[in-house]
Amino acid sequence: MTQTILYARVSTTDQNIEHQRTQAEAAGFVIDEVVADHGVSGVSTKLAERAEGKRLFDKLRAGDVLVVRWVDRLGRDYADVTDTIRLLMRRGVVIKTVINAMIFDGSTTDPMQEAVRDALIAFMAATAQAQAEATKEAQRAGIAANKGDVKKYRGRKPSYDHETLDTVMKMLSLGKGTSEIARANKLTRQAVLRVKADPAAAKKVLERWA
Rank of each mutant, 00 (worst) to 15 (best):
N146T: 08
T109N: 12
A130R: 14
L193D: 12
M124N: 14
D32E: 11
L87I: 10
R76P: 03
T135Q: 11
I85W: 03
P158G: 08
M1Q: 06
K151M: 10
V10N: 02
A197L: 05
F57D: 01
E18Q: 14
A122L: 14
G155S: 06
I99V: 15
R73N: 03
R91V: 01
M89P: 00
T164C: 12
A27S: 13
Q131T: 04
G63D: 10
I95F: 03
R140E: 14
G53P: 05
D166T: 10
R140V: 01
F123L: 12
V68S: 07
Y78G: 00
G106N: 12
R91M: 09
D77E: 09
Y160G: 08
N185F: 09
G42K: 00
M169P: 02
L165Y: 08
A26P: 03
Y78D: 08
G42Q: 03
M171G: 01
K59F: 00
E114H: 07
Q20N: 04
T13R: 15
D72I: 00
M171Q: 15
D149L: 04
V116Q: 10
E25M: 12
R76G: 08
T82K: 06
I103P: 01
Y160N: 07
E133Y: 01
K152E: 05
A79F: 11
L193P: 00
A134K: 15
N16E: 08
D149C: 01
D37C: 05
W209K: 07
E18K: 07
G177Q: 10
E33M: 06
K152L: 11
S44L: 06
R183M: 13
F123W: 09
T2E: 07
S179M: 11
Y7C: 08
T45W: 06
T82W: 00
Y78L: 14
T45R: 14
R73L: 05
A145Y: 03
V168C: 07
V93Y: 05
S41C: 09
V67P: 02
A119M: 13
R69Y: 02
T178C: 06
L56E: 04
I31P: 01
T164Q: 14
A24L: 07
E133T: 02
L6I: 11
E25C: 04
E33I: 00
E52P: 00
A210L: 11
G75D: 02
T97G: 10
R76A: 07
Q129W: 04
T178L: 03
K204Q: 11
G177V: 00
T13F: 11
A24V: 04
K157P: 02
V43P: 01
M112H: 12
E49S: 11
V10D: 02
